[in-house]
Design a protein around this nucleic acid. Structure first.
Lengths: 202, 202
DNA sequence: GTCTATATCATGATAGAC
DNA sequence: GTCTATCATGATATAGAC
């Protein structure tokens, strides 16, 4: 299951196809994704894609895997020892105050794929995995903070669920509305929530 | 802009098409939505749809309007005078502890449409409108509660943003993952949040 | 307003040469 | 492994009868 590196999970050709798929999806969206449009995004033909993938469905499941792996890799980067700053880092990573184009586009792709999880069980399992990863990671940080006295003795799992829901809701807002102040407001209220919920009630 | 009743906004034929579109979308999803499949869902032909709508795009924008109107009508139902119970009602309405099939399917359709707001400006505006409506409504309740002394003197807009983000994140989770306990956990933590943030710090 | 029939195009997928 | 050429199907959209 766990691999040393992403490079061993996909061959060069497959990775090229995945990256072309990513670009095609950014340009045309999930409903507009077609084999021809993927082929347009790199230097090989439609038919070559079918050498590597039996069907469009199989390709899409692989693509989801590819995108989720990227997300996980990105999320798992060095997290501080100190529970309080670890939590800050995680939140800054999930709801950055400033987002560059690349990050923003990554969110768009994820949301579009996510909406397909409503009818596709393979997709659904992947997003269950993502949310579970987020909740578990945050939960562990909170538990560490409770142990070393940084945080109050709260129900860590419940607080983690809350944070993840808020973070996801904020992301959706940012990507599907023009409400430009909202993310900043949520960042503030999230800090306030963490303060009042986790720090001692002075 | 504001109409007495939904019945005046769409003719009978149009409403039939909208309802057929709704069923087709539930069955095939947004990417699988086609004029033929909409026509399959009622007793008229493909061509008759083109009598009422010039193009598929125009139909889809109308459909979004239709679905969003339903959502708003549903959300705007009688809300209590008392700020505290009004807030409870709103949250129970947005994140029900139990959801029947109809409610669940309504959420699926909204999420699928929402993911299209990432590339379609008309869609984006509609979802901006929805989120603004939710934030404004909740904000007003909180402000009323502050005035009559029910709630602490918090920054109402910020708390409202937080609640809406959390509610939306919880909905996404419910519709796109198999994490069946999560919504209940978020409901609990939302109540806890409202308690600690809005009620006096005893 | 609704029908049947049809034009035109893009899609997923395959065959067979190299 | 990759290509070109091709097939069958289903898409949007229109024409014209009723």
């Amino acid at each position: 299951m766990a691999m040393d590196s992403v490079d061993q999970k996909w061959s060069t050709a497959e990775r090229e196809i995945m990256e072309a798929t990513y670009r095609a999806m950014l340009e045309h969206g999930y409903p507009g994704l077609s084999i021809s449009r993927i082929a347009e995004q790199f230097d090989k033909s439609k038919a070559s894609i079918y050498y590597h993938y039996d069907s469009k469905d199989e390709l899409l499941v692989s693509f989801l895997d590819f995108v989720v792996d990227q997300f996980k890799t990105n999320f798992a980067e060095e997290i501080d020892e100190d529970p309080s700053s670890a939590l800050n880092t995680v939140i800054e990573r999930l709801v950055p105050l400033q987002m560059n184009d690349e990050e923003f586009q990554g969110r768009i792709v994820l949301i579009e794929l996510r909406s397909q999880a409503t009818r596709n069980e393979a997709f659904r399992e992947k997003f269950t995995e993502i949310n579970e990863l987020l909740v578990t990671s945050i939960c562990e940080i909170i538990e560490r903070g409770i142990e070393d006295g940084t945080f109050r003795d709260v129900e860590a799992a419940r607080v983690a669920e809350h944070i993840v829901a808020t973070v996801n809701g904020s992301t959706i807002d940012r990507v599907t509305t023009n409400r430009e102040v909202a993310p900043a407001a949520v960042r503030l209220s999230l800090s306030s929530y963490i303060d009042s919920e986790l720090k001692s009630c002075q």
